[in-house]
Amino acid sequence: MTMRIFLLLGTLIVIVLLPQFLAPFHIRVVQLFFFTAALALAWNVMGGLAGYWSFGHTVFIGMGAFAAAHFVAKLGLPAGPLQMIAGIVFGALFCGIVAAIIAYPILRLRGIYFAIAMLGIGQVAAELANNVGWFQGDVGLFLETALPDGVEPERFFYYVFAGLFLFTWMVSLVVMRSRFGYGLLAIREDEDTAKMLGVPTEQIKAFGFTISAVLVGMLGATYAYSLGYFTASSVFRIDFSLNMIIYCLIGGIGTLAGPVVGAALMLLLTQIILGQLLELHLLATGLVVILIVLTLPNGVMGLVGGEAFRRRFSMRAGGKAR
C-alpha cells in the first residue's frame, strides 16, 4: 500500500516538474499524450470492459466542443477560469444527456452493428454541425482562454490535460473495481447469461455508455479551449475515433494501463520517430496494427502480465465481430 502511494506521488512529481525540462514542442506532445490516453481510457469503459466497440466516439468530442462554445457564448460569460470550467462541465453534461437518450435504442445492437451505428451517428452529427447554419461549424467558433500571467498556453494546457487524464484514470479505476465494472465484464463475456445472474444489462450498458460519453465530452470541450478556434472538421474527426480503439488494442484492451501504454507508444512512434516523415504516418500505423494483431493479440500489456492477465484482457475476449 505504501509502495502504491510512493508510486503515485512519484508520478505526480514527474508530471508537475516535467515541463521544466522540455522544449515547447515536446510539452505539446506530452499534452497530446494526456489527451489521447484519457480518450482511450474513456472509450475503454464501453469498448474494453463491456465489449461494445464504438467506431464513432469522436461524436462526443465534437458535441462537447460545440455545446461548450455555444453555452458560454449564449450566456455571454467573460473569458476566465470560471467560464472555462462552466463550458467544460456543460459540454460533458450535454454529452451525458445525449448518450443517455440514445443509449437504449443504440445498445440493442451488438458487435459490428453497434460499431457502425456509432460511426453513422458520428457522421450525421458532423454533417449537421457543418451544414446547419445555426451551429456555425463551417465558419468556426471561438473559445478564449484567459491564461494566468506569465504562463504559456502549451504549459497551461499541459497541466489541464494532465489533471483530466488523472481524473479519467481515477474514474476508470473506480469503475473497474466496482460491482458495476463486474457487470460490464459479464456483459462483454455473455450478455444473455449475465441476465440470468441478475445483471440488469440494459441499465448497466446505458450507464457505462453515459460515463464514457461524459468523459469524452469533457475532454472534447477542453480540447476546443486548447484550440481556441475550431470548426466542425477539427473536432469531429474519424481519426480520433480510430485512435481510441487502436491505442487500447495496442496496449491491452480492457485494462487500466493498456490504453495509456498504447497511447504512449503510438505517439512516440508517430510524433517523435516519424515526426519528420508525415507522409508515412498511415503506413506506420497500419503496420503496427497488423503486427500487434499477429504477434501480440493481447496487446503490449499481455507481455508483462501473467497468464490470467493475458486471457482476461485479450482480443479474444474483446468485442464480437457480429
Binding site: L185, E189, A308
Partner: peptide
C-alpha cells in the same frame, strides 16, 4: 436462478470471478 444446459461460462475471467459476478448481483 438457472444453470444452463449448454455451459456458458464467462470464458476470459477466472472461476472465482465468474461466481463473484453472481454474488455481486442476484
Amino acid at each position: 436462478a438457472r444453470a444452463f444446459q449448454i455451459s456458458k461460462p464467462f470464458p476470459a475471467i477466472t472461476v472465482r470471478e465468474n461466481v463473484r459476478i453472481g454474488a455481486l448481483y442476484g
